[in-house]
Computed example of a mutant assay.
Amino acid sequence: MIYFDHSATTHPYPQALHTYQEVATKIFGNPSSLHSLGTQAGRILEASRRQIAELLSVESSEIFFTSGGTEGDNWVLKGVAFEKKAFGKHIIVSDVEHPAVKESAKWLSQQGFDVDYAPVDKRGFVQVDKLAQLIRPETILVSVMVVNNEMGAIQPLQAIADLLADKPTISFHVDAVQAVGKVPVSDFMLDRVDFATFSGHKFHAVRGVGFIYKKSGKKITPLLTGGGQEQDLRSTTENVPAIAAMAKALRLTLEDQEAVEKLKSMRDVLAESLASYDGVTLFSETGEDFAPHILTFGIKGVRGEVLVHAFEEHEIYISTTSACSSKAGKPAGTLIAMGVPTSQAQTAVRISLDTSNSMAEIEQFLTIFKQIYQKTEKIRH
């Protein structure tokens, strides 16, 4: 089996699974309980929070645990919108955001908020000058992802941060779900960023756990009310084993100094080989402003889902666009925003790599690709 769908989910590190099992078995108390078992769980919870904060160079009081990226994006967009609605009801999100952001923005528009979508250029990057034109006195939130999950474009966050530097009343949120281990933390945890979203299963933790960063002093409406956990902002018993495993996975991921170069090498071999086929369109690029692990391409005239299943017959697993949209059969929303015709966007498939992949797997993929490509000759002509 060759697994090339790591942007959808990663396999948990063995060390993270070991941590999960140890904590779940030995430290099973509720961290809110007053007895010693609760105290032990509370210590693990706060130690995990401190470790995550240190890895991101922020304060532990700025880390809040969630169930993952979708919850985090929903919480930030809706929580900031309702917290700041007295000051304005205008929100800007980029036109290539993950559905967790775009659907939250759509929902807010149905609740009386005004939403604008910042356009991207033909390469998939937010046009900062166009975003600037959308800002109004009543703008309260700008949300832009770090790494586009469909094309791999690393968005111009510093330029957006500079644009917002003299606009302190506008909260700046970044979706960092695809960035961990692929982009230096310092490139997206900027001083101007007020909120950031993370999902554990994207960096080898277990599913169902994540966190948000909320800059000290920034306000957000509580997501869940009840027992007062997470500084009374997300009331539910914390998933301590998963949180401890996530802290371990984050440390291991960020400590892998050779990861980016290995990913680039594999991606570049793929890109160079695929580009040699006349009937192949490369939608992603391989420059420094693209993430090292994502490569999106298509075979002319062949729908993406057909190609996904063709590779699956050889136990090679790739994806159409984002995992959250692929089952709906929708073309890559990012490609549509980039101005790519729908018929061409429908051919798109995504390879997303991990350091657990090898150059031998790349070579095997290319061998199988050649066979599949030859079978599509009648379709292409």
Results as ranks from 00 to 15, higher is better:
I2M: 11
D5V: 00
H6M: 08
H11P: 03
E22T: 14
V23E: 07
K26H: 15
I27Y: 12
I27G: 02
L34E: 13
S36A: 15
I52M: 14
E54W: 03
S60C: 11
F64L: 15
T66D: 05
D73N: 15
L77S: 02
G79A: 11
F82P: 01
W107E: 11
F125E: 01
F125Y: 10
Q127Y: 03
N149A: 15
Q158C: 02
A161E: 03
L164G: 07
L164W: 10
V183M: 10
V183C: 13
G200H: 08
H201R: 04
F203L: 09
I212E: 01
T221R: 14
L223Q: 04
L223K: 06
D232S: 13
A245S: 13
M246P: 00
A247P: 05
A247K: 06
R251K: 15
D256Y: 10
K264G: 00
L270K: 02
S273K: 15
G279D: 12
G287R: 08
H293Y: 11
H293V: 05
G301N: 06
E313V: 02
S325K: 12
S325I: 15
A332S: 15
M338Q: 12
Q346F: 07
T347L: 02
T347P: 00
T347Q: 14
T355F: 02
Y373V: 09
H381C: 02
